[in-house]
Design a protein around this nucleic acid. Sequence first.
RNA 1: GGAGACGUCGCAUAGUUCGGCUUAGUGCACCACCCUGCUAAGGUGGAGUGCCCUUCACAGGGCACCGUGGGUUCAAAUCCCACCGUCUCCGCCA
Length: 423
Amino acid sequence: MIDPVLLRENPELIKRSQEARGDSVEAVDSALAADAARRAAITSFEALRASQNQFGKRVASAPPEEKKALVAEAQSLAAEVKAAGAAATDAEARFTTIVRTIANPVIDGVPAGGEENFSTLRTHGQTPTFDFEPRDHLELGELLGAIDMARGAKVSGSRFYFLRGIGARLEIALMNMALDHALSAGFVPLITPTLVRPEIMDGTGFLGEHNDEVYYLPGDDLYLTGTSEVALAGYHKDEILDLSAEPLRYAGWSTCYRREAGSGGKDTRGIIRVHQFNKLEMFAYVLPDDAEAEHDRLVALQEDMLQALGLSYRVIDVAAGDLGSSAARKFDIEAWVPTQGAYRELTSTSNCTTYQARRLDIRYRTESGKTAPVATLNGTLATTRWIVALLETHQQADGSVRVPVALRPYLGGLELLEPVSRP
RNA sequence: GGAGACGUCGCAUAGUUCGGCUUAGUGCACCACCCUGCUAAGGUGGAGUGCCCUUCACAGGGCACCGUGGGUUCAAAUCCCACCGUCUCCGCCA
C-alpha cells in the first residue's frame, strides 16, 4: 500500500508514477476524495461516541429512580452512534479499496512504458557460438536422461516434468551452490511453507494482478505460493523489527507453483515455463534509506552466480508498466539462450520499498521512537530454469555438456555430462 | 475427526462468577530523576499500538484496541455466535 501521507501531501508524484506505469491517473484523485470523506466520517463518529461515553458514565452513577429515564434518552443516541460508526467503516473500506489499486510509486530513473521499454544496464560475456548445430535444452536433456516431459504430462498434465538422473542432480547442485553463496553473504536459510493463508497471499500483493496465476485450495482456504517471497514476507508480519545494526536477510528454499494461466501456447517446449519448479530466493528487510543500496547488492550476488556458471547475460532495468504493483524498481537478469537467439529471464530482483511492509504491518523504530514501515527486497539466486541456459551454453557437438568449474564440487567433481544410452 | 482447557499492556499474571466503581490492577524487565560514601537495596515519576482533530512547531484533546470478526445492551475484557491459534487426551495416518 502506498503511504497515505504521501498521497495527501504529494499526489503529483503518485500521478507521475501512475502515468509511467500506464495505470489510472484518476485513481489518485478518487483516493484523495475518499480520504477526505473517510476522515470526515471518522471525525463525526468519534464526536458522537465521545458524548455517548460521557452519557454512559452518568447512567452508571445515577440513582435507580432516574436510571430508567436516562436509559430511554440514551437509546436514541446509541442509534446515532451506530449509524455514524457504520458510515465511518464504509468510508474507510471505500478508501482502502481505492488506495490499494494504486501501485508503488516508481523510483526516479525507471524507464516509463511497457515490457519492451526496458533499459539495458550492462551485458556480460560473449554470446556462445558453435561450429555445429546446437541442440535445444530439451533435446540435450533427453539425450542426457535428465528431463522427461512425456511422463510429466502423463502423471500431472502439460507443463509438468520429471527431472531424473543428472537432471535431478543438476538442480540440487544449483540450489546448493546458490545456498552456499547466500550463506557466505550472511543470509539465514529458511525452508518455507508453500501453502499460505489468504491474508499472507493478499498482503504480499499476489492476489491483485497475479490472481489468475495462483493455485487455490478451496477446501482448506489456502494458496500455493509461486515463490517463497510470499512466506518470507509473511514471516515478520505484524512485527516491529530491530534493523539498527544490520538488515535481516533470508534465503528461502522452496518449490514454486504457478498456473501460467495467461501463457497458453507460449514456451510450451521443455522446462522454460512450468507449473512447478524449485527456487532459492533472497529476501531482505532493510531501513528505507538503505533499500537502493541493498537492491544493488542483490543484483551483484545474482551476477556472481551467473558469472561463476559461465553464462552470458544482460541486466535490465524493467520498465514501469512491467513492474508489478509492489515493486518500485525491478532488475531482471536475462541469460542468452543459444537456440532461441534471445535473452531469457533467469533472475528478477525487486525493491518493494515500504509498499509490501505497509500492507503486512512490518515496522521498525525510528530514532525518535516512532514506528515506520521497513523496506523489503527480494531476488532470485537459482531456479530450475537455469538448467536451460546451462545445458545450451556449455553443450558440445556430441551432445555432452561441460560442467562449469564452480558447479563441479556440487556434482562430486563431475566435469562432463554425457549422453546416456537408455533414456 | 472427537472431547476438553486456554488465549489480557515486552514477559508473568489479576480481573470474566454477578456487564457500569477498569482512563485494565500487580510483579519483573525498561527509561528518567531522587536517596545512600560506592555497589546492592529503597523512593518518585514515566512508559503500548493505530487513527482523528487543533498546531508552523512544541504540545494538547479525542476515538479505538484485552486472539480475530460479528451480535446483544444505554453500557462488553466480562454475556452470545463464528473463526483462528496453543495445549491435553482419544481416534486416524502414505
